[in-house]
């Protein structure tokens, strides 16, 4: 199947991209890595009038640190994320997760900004952004806006991005002593979308798990923080109590791979495995 006809324009700067987006509005789609957009175009599931190629914007590139944050430019490709020492140091859950994203020939093109903006409920990176308490940086003709990942993912393929906004970067707090992370997903085949997955970030303080954030994906309509389960775990309530609480935290869906009950079961299995990996002592207690 071949894509429907569309126009294409390559933006050379962020202001130009914003201008083009303002001009074409809903008729336009932004093209960064294109690894989700191109399949949709080729299958004629999406038929925009124009593609605005933002993949050459210098403002959206680079991985750097400030005094408090790790800043990852939206155009950072998955392979760059995978290999970046700064990411491994400050957000190792991303380094771990990215190896599960599709395959090398896709990781070479796909971008972190594209993945977050696409907000696929089955994608790894939105859940990582939640677990990492990331901040999403967006630009519009009105200027820059920064919101917490918690407020960014609003629904099935839906985000807080306004029609004239472009996601420019992701900011994550620098790693602190005691930070621990865990990641797990259950995919039928390597590189497939998972039946369910979990990205977890926390801190060990005085031998106890604190500041725990459990970002689930492939369960429900969007990446979801399991706040009750996390609270139980940080309060010392134990893995089984936390696993039970996932019924309140998550809204599992039915699909071809698993029904809601199976999905919730698997989310619990992952919780046990990921948390035990982060805190071997909890496994012993369980």
């Amino acid at each position: 199947m071949k894509a429907s006809a569309f126009d294409y324009v390559r933006a050379k700067s962020l202001p130009e991209a914003l201008d083009l987006l303002a001009r074409h509005g809903e008729a336009a789609k932004l093209l960064a890595g294109g690894q989700s957009l191109l399949p949709a175009l080729n299958l004629r599931l999406s038929a925009p009038e124009i593609l605005i190629d933002i993949s050459h914007l210098p403002e959206l590139r680079g991985i750097s640190t400030t005094a408090t944050s790790l800043r990852i430019g939206a155009l950072t490709r998955h392979v760059e994320l995978q290999n970046a020492a700064l990411v491994a140091e400050h957000a190792p859950v991303l380094t771990q997760a990215i190896g599960h994203v599709a395959h090398a020939a896709i990781r070479s093109r796909g971008t972190i900004g594209g993945s977050l903006a696409n907000a696929d409920p089955a994608a790894e990176l939105p859940a990582c952004a939640l677990a990492l308490h990331a901040r999403i940086v967006m630009q519009s003709p009105r200027g820059e806006r920064v919101i917490a990942a918690d407020d960014f993912f609003t629904g099935l393929f839906a985000t807080a991005l306004l029609p004239d906004e472009i996601l420019t970067a992701v900011e994550i707090n620098l790693a602190q002593p005691g930070d621990v992370h865990g990641f797990g997903e259950l995919a039928r085949r390597s590189g497939d979308y998972a039946i369910v997955g979990l990205a977890a970030q926390g801190r060990v303080q005085n031998g106890k798990l604190a500041a725990l954030r459990l970002g689930y994906f492939s369960i429900g309509t969007k990446a979801t923080l399991a706040t009750k389960a996390a609270a139980i775990l940080t309060a010392g309530g134990g893995i089984e109590a936390a696993a039970a609480a996932l019924a309140d935290d998550l809204e599992p869906h039915d699909d071809l791979q698993a029904d809601a009950a199976t999905r919730l079961h698997l989310a619990r299995v992952l919780l046990r495995r990921v948390i035990s990996g982060m805190m071997p002592s909890l496994k012993a207690a369980a």
């Binding site: 259950l186 039928r188 791979q257 698993a258 009950a261 199976t262 079961h265 698997l266």
Partner: peptide, 13 residues
Amino acid sequence: MTPALILRALGRG
């Protein structure tokens, strides 16, 4: 024999 099928057979999930 999908994971869902095996879990169902085991009475899990």
